[in-house]
């Protein structure tokens, strides 16, 4: 399996890129995986799986040291960890939605009095990751729906669905409506 995926690295430039990415972000990926999974062995498995996904999507990485690349890697490692949690929870019949509640933080310093911009930014930051990561990849990193589908290993239809649903939920939240 590893041999199959590393054979996807087609040029010398891309291979060096993976090595540079590893040197820069490896500890961060381990840290994020450990935060999500709370188990060192599972965190190692998640990082290994994430590395293979990164190799598959190396064409989407421009500069090694950039916010866009950091977001790309964080998204991959987080979703790899989420997939592992989801598989475990399926066995225990726990829905992932039960683990993700969309709540704005308790009124920090009078949120009601905050500017519109701060309200919107805060609401986006506290979106469930299912929707937030699609938003970040699309509206901040500038990826197309097709690229987001590749990164998250879902269909484009799901990308569109999450964008649409995320917008509606964000709108309802900011307008104080029931979701």
């Amino acid at each position: 399996m590893l041999i199959l995926y590393t054979s996807l690295i087609e040029t010398q430039e891309q291979k060096s890129k993976f090595e540079l990415l590893y040197e820069k972000y490896y500890r961060l990926m381990l840290y994020m995986a450990m935060q999500a999974l709370k188990d060192p062995m599972e965190a190692e498995d998640a990082v290994h799986t994430a590395c293979i996904k990164i190799i598959k999507n190396l064409d989407k990485v421009d500069e090694v040291e950039s916010p866009r690349t950091k977001r790309f890697l964080l998204t991959i490692i987080k979703h790899t960890a989420i997939d592992m949690i989801r598989k475990k929870n399926r066995e225990k019949n726990i829905s992932l939605e039960e683990l993700e509640e969309w709540q704005l933080p308790a009124d920090e310093g009078g949120m009601a009095a905050q500017s519109e911009e701060n309200r919107i930014v805060t609401a986006i930051k506290h979106m469930p990751e299912l929707y937030r990561d699609v938003f970040l990849l699309k509206y901040s990193s500038g990826y197309e729906n097709r690229e987001i589908a590749d990164i998250l290993e879902i269909s484009e239809a799901s990308v569109r669905k999450r964008i649409s649903r995320g917008k509606k939920k964000l709108e309802a939240l900011l307008n104080g409506e029931n979701m």
Partner: peptide, 20 residues
Amino acid sequence: YVPKADQELLDAVPDRPDPG
């Protein structure tokens, strides 16, 4: 607004954290 949220989220992530 999403890029601003993104920057704040990225700033909150340490650069070279200790995985523990």
